[in-house]
Amino acid sequence: MSALLVGESVCKYFGGLRAVDDVSFTLGEGEILGLIGPNGAGKTTLFSVAAGSVPATRGRVLLDGKQVSGKSGHRSVHQGICRTHQIVRPFARLSVLDNVLVGHHYGRPGPGHGRPVDHAMGILDFIGLADRAHQLPGELTLAGRKRLEVARALATGPRVLLLDEVVAGLTPVEAQRFVELIRQIRDRGTSIVMIEHVMHAVMGVSDRVMVLDHGRQIAEGTPEQVVKHPQVIEAYLGRDDDEPNDHDEPTHGDGPMGAGDPASGQHAKEKPDA
C-alpha cells in the first residue's frame, strides 16, 4: 500500500501548550485510519494542521508528496484534502443542494464530474439526503446535518477526507448507518482519517488506529493491537483526575459547545475492548 498522506513530525504549540507534539503518521490509498484519544489530546488540532487552516509549528503534512500543511484551507482542498467539523457548520441560509454545490464548484479541479446539479444530487442520493435537497439545513435532524457536512466535503472531490466526530451525538441506529456510510465512501475511492470517541464505531471500521494523548502519539496499530496497549488503557481508564483538562481543545475553545460535546462523557465509560 503506497502512502497517500504522510505526517512528518508535526508539532503545533499554542504558547506553552503543546497541542500536537511530534506526531508522524501515514495513510495508505483506500485506507481508514482511526484517530482516538481523550479530549484535549490534540486530534482536532492535528486535523486543522493537515487541512492547512492552522500552520504547523514544526513538521509538515504531505499529500502524494506535495505539502498541504501551512497553506490556506482552500488550497489544501484544491489539492484533495477536505475536513468536516465536529460541530457541523452548514451554510445555514443556503439550501441543502446549494451547500453541496459550493463544495462542487470550489473543490478540487480535475476531471469533470458531469453537470454540477447532477453531481451534487448524486452525492446527496448516495448520502441519503436527496429528498431533502431543497430544504434548509436547519430543517434537518442532527444526523441529517452531519450527513450534509460529509456530503459537502465529498462534493469537493477529496482524495483524503478528514472526519471529525461525525458519529458523536447520534443514536446507536443512526451511528450504525453512518459507519456503513463511511465504509462506502472508502469503497468509492476516498481515503479517510476519522476522529471518533464512539469506540465500537471507530474500532469496527478502521484499518488502523492511532492514539494521541496530550499531543503525543502513544500507540498505533490495528484496532486489536491498540486496545491491548498498556498506555492506551492507562490513558482511557487510569487517569480520571485528568477530567478538568477536558476543555483544552484549542480550536473550539470559545464556542458554547466546546465543552458540551455530547460524546465526551462516553469515553470514560466505554472500555476500549468494545
Binding site: 487541512a51 487552516s53 490556506s72 484551507g73 482552500h74 488550497r75 482542498v77 484544491h78 477536505c82 475536513r83 467539523h85 457548520r89 452548514p90 451554510f91 445555514a92 441560509r93 443556503l94 446549494d98 454545490l101 459550493v102 463544495g103 464548484h105 470550489y106 473543490g107 478540487r108 454540477p116 459537502r152 466535503a153 462534493a155 469537493t156
Partner: peptide, 23 residues
C-alpha cells in the same frame, strides 16, 4: 457559481474556506 461562493463567505468564512472557497 461566484454568487454561491459569495453567499458561502457571507454565511461562514471559515467553513467556506474549508470547502475550497478562497475568501
Amino acid at each position: 457559481r461566484i454568487g454561491l461562493g459569495l453567499l458561502a463567505i457571507k454565511e461562514d468564512v471559515e467553513a467556506a474556506s474549508d470547502v475550497g472557497v478562497n475568501p
